[in-house]
Amino acid sequence: MVGPLVQSALDPHSPQGERLRDLIWIFTAVCGVVWLAVMIALAIAVWRRRASAAPEPSALERAAELRLTIIVGALVGMTAVTVLALTGLSYATQKRVLGRPLAAGMALLVTGHQWWWEVEYKDDEPARTFTTANEIHVPVGVPVTIRLRADDVIHSFWVPSLMGKEDLIPGRENSIRFTAARAGIYRGQCAEFCGAQHAHMALLVVAQEKPDFDAWRDGQIRSADDPNEPERQKGLAAFLAKPCVMCHAVRGTSAAARVGPDLTHVGSRMTLAAGTLPLSRGTLAAWLADPQGVKPGSQMPFVQLDPDELNAISAYLEGLK
């Protein structure tokens, strides 16, 4: 359904991700060498057990004592240098990856909710700002700064192939930056336990060539088209008459609430309910019929619909491309 998904910190597709991958490998290599050295020393110590018990255990041998002091001192020194070097390296990488905000490029605002992501595209021109959910599109090669907020509890934003983790904390704003190097679909996941459906709080980052991205953005800026087919018209009417409008927005209709995801172009998304299901008319109907069965604990309540309403609303939503 969604094409090959990339989700691995060891398979980076951005300069920031590459630096983090290098850091991971340097740490693994250095720690591996240290581990090996310790194991070898241990093996030697076990193998070279004392040949015979010393006649007088408490007797001091000045020369041996001095030699051991020097060896232990040198090893402590080497350990300290290694730890300091790794700490410094980690700090330097973090500074380069997370450092000063990018002046140029694109700015997004992502708000974490239990258990979905609200995404706002900012623009100097107010008419070009819009809100979507769970799927972020970015142009390849353009630096992107994402401001991160949380609505309820702490979440963590993590798209392993593009960047490190950054927490979303209620009452505070953090930010993270990345530049997608290649077109592709990168999967991300909330990385801080945030309640019952933490595991179903995924998102997709779709990196596209600039013309494709511009086309996508122009599509998202538009309000929802009025439906032409009778079934979808019935769906719109049912949607507007039901509790849906207390929580959801469909731009171009009277539904304008922001408690749940913006549905203006929900049919254009690849997944449903933050990566829980692939999006199709069938899964939309399944979701509306039993949200608490699909994603138990989700903040989307079960709304009683008769079968005709259910079908009509699913058709309406699926057509919101």
């Binding site: 008459a241 039901k242 509790p243 309540p301 709304v303 009683q304």
Partner: peptide, 8 residues
């Protein structure tokens, strides 16, 4: 009525 589900 009809705007908020009974459970809620």
């Amino acid at each position: 009525r009809g705007k908020i589900t009974d459970e809620q």
